[in-house]
Amino acid sequence: MMINPGSTHLAAIKAALFAACLLPAFLLWRGFELDTLGANPIEAITRGTGDWTLRFLLITLAVTPLRKLTGWHWVVRLRRMLGLFAFAYGTAHLLTYLWLDQFFDWYAIARDILKRPFITVGFAALVLMAPLAATSSNAAIRRLGGRRWQALHRAIYPIAVLGCVHFWWLVKKDITEPLIYTAITAALLGIRAWWREQERRKQLAGGYLPQPPRLTGKVIRIFAK
């Protein structure tokens, strides 16, 4: 198993992953062209883009656990692309709703967003994703500083939860599928909480403080030069 691919390998992996991420969109488009999406193709496209938004969110959330469990640190370098695909499919999902489903009937759309909690929740999730997508460049990371950037990008946790709620509330009765997504989300967030707790205990047991002690008073120079 390749543990740490070189830059040429990584470029190839990224290209293959990019193509794979486009595949669901291609299949939906082809299904629409060939009329193989069933009796209600617009519903199938809405469902398809929504499913893939949630899937890409969960795949993005799986990167860190995968890295920690396998030691493949390089997978982190694929995370940005996965997150951006989640946003792209989310945007396609919203556009399908606005265009194919509602046909830009803004009055109906506004009423829907305000009156129907599952649409409100889905819309909120996408709105929250926008600043994450906008700050995905290296330049943005530098501008924000690593710590602030990381804090902002933790918004993916509530976004994934909102995505699950959105799916759960739209289903008429059979909640099997939303239940599966929710269980995976819970596992991916749960493992992070578990690790954080382990870290905290280790620090307590080790007797050292998580933050360097605040120094007050006079600084004594120990090593003379």
Binding site: A39, N40, I42, E43, D101, Q102, F103, A108, R111, D112, K115, R116, P117, F118, W169, L170
Partner: peptide
């Protein structure tokens, strides 16, 4: 009278593009 989770004002006739 809307369904609590969606509007009943319009419908998509299967086979048609707009509602």
């Amino acid at each position: 009278v809307d369904h609590p989770r969606w509007s009943q004002a319009t419908e998509r006739r299967i086979g048609e593009f707009t509602k």
